[in-house]
């Protein structure tokens, strides 16, 4: 008997909607494979990104809050971009704590504020699921061989685990990439750069600052002997690809891509050809595609 999919509102954000479409598609497919239907938030807008809060806090809160007011009342709102989720969570926190702000936005968007809206990161639905058991229940034989048995990876969180002090008690699920992928048979390689910030937007205006940072990260990645880096941040993924100037870097995969491969999702056409550092030879060698 097929179980009905659990519906969740989904905020893709600009990166996943455009420059990291492979992250977006693999995320939607993976979530479906574990029983969740991601329903794109109707007419969502940019969360404000780093630029809005940098130079105009009022606009930053306005932009993030419109998305909160668009979210249907009856289901949680999920985002996978670490920067988007931080903006959405922080804005929800501020509106919840400030009656004047709440009144102002309720008037602006002509809707009541949903104080109880659950804003969740993609990690949160993974934290409560045992993927190997799940795969077995779907009819795969896990005794044979776990799907990621042959792969050595470096977890790369960038700055996504760091939160402003006012939000530090919100769980950040550190160690989740390691926990999930090793449960699927992959080997974790430990390193000291897993939480090093990638440089984000400085990549555009000050690339000469970002390139040495990315090269430092990649040099240690190569020296570690791992097959690939796995990141849950589309911005980190982009910077690892575009600002690395060392020869023969190892590929960086989106967490959602490797999870999809582990679930046996076969329609990955269009994902890996969008990578600048081609992961296909490595994935073929490991028998993953």
């Amino acid at each position: 008997m097929k179980k009905e999919l659990v519906k969740i509102s989904y905020f893709p954000g600009c990166s996943l909607a455009t420059s990291a479409k492979e992250n977006n598609i693999s995320l939607i497919k993976f979530c479906k494979s574990i029983g969740y239907e991601l329903i794109e938030l109707e007419d969502w807008n940019c969360c404000g990104s780093s630029s809005a809060h940098s130079i105009d806090s009022k606009t930053a809160f306005g932009l993030a809050s419109r998305n909160l007011f668009l979210a249907p009342f009856d289901r949680p709102l999920l985002a996978a971009c670490p920067s988007c989720i931080l903006r959405l969570l922080q804005t929800h926190l501020h509106i919840s704590q400030n009656v004047d702000l709440q009144n102002e936005y309720e008037k602006m968007f002509s809707k009541p504020f949903n104080r109880d809206l659950k804003i969740i990161h993609f990690f949160e639905i993974l934290a409560n699921i045992n993927l190997p058991d799940f795969i077995e229940s779907q009819g795969h034989n896990k005794k044979e061989k776990l799907p990621l048995d042959c792969i050595k990876f470096l977890p790369y969180y960038g700055c996504m685990l760091a939160r402003p002090p006012e939000m530090k008690n919100i769980p950040n699920y550190h160690g989740l990439i390691e926990k999930i992928l090793s449960s699927l048979g992959a080997e974790v390689v430990r390193w000291s750069y897993s939480s090093r910030c990638c440089g984000t937007f400085l990549s555009v205006s000050r690339p000469e600052i970002v390139t040495p940072i990315i090269n430092d990260i990649m040099l240690q990645a190569v020296a570690s002997g791992a097959d690939c880096i796995v990141t849950a941040c589309a911005m980190c993924h982009l910077n690892m690809e575009i600002r690395c100037s060392i020869k023969n870097p190892i590929p960086t995969l989106h967490f959602s891509e490797i999870l999809s491969l582990a679930m046996g999702i076969k329609d990955y056409k269009g994902w890996f050809e969008r990578h600048i550092v081609d992961p296909v030879p490595m994935l073929k060698q490991k028998g993953l595609i």
Binding site: C159, L161, R163, K168, S195, C197, G199, L202
Partner: peptide, 28 residues
């Protein structure tokens, strides 16, 4: 302007100072 607000500093601050918020305020 160089500060990107990655919160690495705030995470290690023994006084829980929100450096990113200070930088936002100073820029504005």
């Amino acid at each position: 302007w160089i500060c990107v607000g990655c919160n690495t500093c705030s995470s290690v601050c023994p006084m829980s100072i929100d450096m990113s918020a200070i930088m936002d305020a100073l820029r504005q």
